[in-house]
């Protein structure tokens, strides 16, 4: 129960998760901070244009981990796919391998990807995005 899932029908597109993720991972001086939650516009059945957010599925058989030439991605004991920034060489092999278009790259060309707030979860804390989700759409699950 460590993966972050989204009950799409209850998402309002309020974007709190996107900024909570940034706040968790960056200092306030990081003006161009990149969130691990990717936000995109959708049009609902009624015609409402709003944001939706998505992030890493933490696949059990993660193709991104398999293709990695270095140890910049690994699966931890909770089943979360963890990026290791120091070991990322910016080759973008993970981008090509990911079927869900998740990997993003920052100003230094390094991978930015959800780590499921693994350290927080290991200490009994919710991932920052789940903690703040205003509607309760984001949950922990399998």
């Amino acid at each position: 129960m460590a993966k972050i899932i989204c009950e799409e029908k209850n998402c309002s597109g309020c974007l709190a998760c996107v900024v909570a993720c940034i706040d968790q991972h960056y200092d306030e001086t990081a003006g161009e901070a990149l969130s691990c939650r990717i936000h995109e516009k959708i049009t609902t059945e009624t015609g409402l244009v709003r944001y939706t957010t998505r992030t890493c599925h933490h696949c059990a058989d993660a193709p991104c981990v398999k293709v990695y030439p270095t140890e910049a991605l690994y699966i931890n004991e909770m089943g979360l796919v963890i990026p290791v920034r120091d070991k990322c060489i910016g080759c973008r092999a993970c981008e090509a391998a990911c079927p869900f278009d998740i990997p993003r790259f920052d100003g230094e060309g390094k991978l930015v990807k959800c780590d499921g707030c693994a350290a927080r979860q290991a200490h009994g804390l919710l991932p920052a995005c789940v903690r703040t989700c205003n509607t309760g759409a984001l949950k922990l699950g399998e």
């Binding site: 309020c14 974007l15 709190a16 996107v18 900024v19 909570a20 940034i22 706040d23 968790q24 200092d27 306030e28 001086t29 920052a128 903690r131 703040t132 989700c133 205003n134």
Partner: peptide, 29 residues
């Protein structure tokens, strides 16, 4: 160094902050 909604008291925002509140660090500093 980080903010989140208070969840230790029975308050209306129980553990949550909106998108603007989540940027509080940037607001203050």
């Amino acid at each position: 160094i980080k903010v989140e909604g208070c969840d230790s008291l029975p308050v209306a925002n129980s553990g949550k902050l909106c998108v603007k509140g989540a940027a509080l660090k940037q607001t203050i500093y």
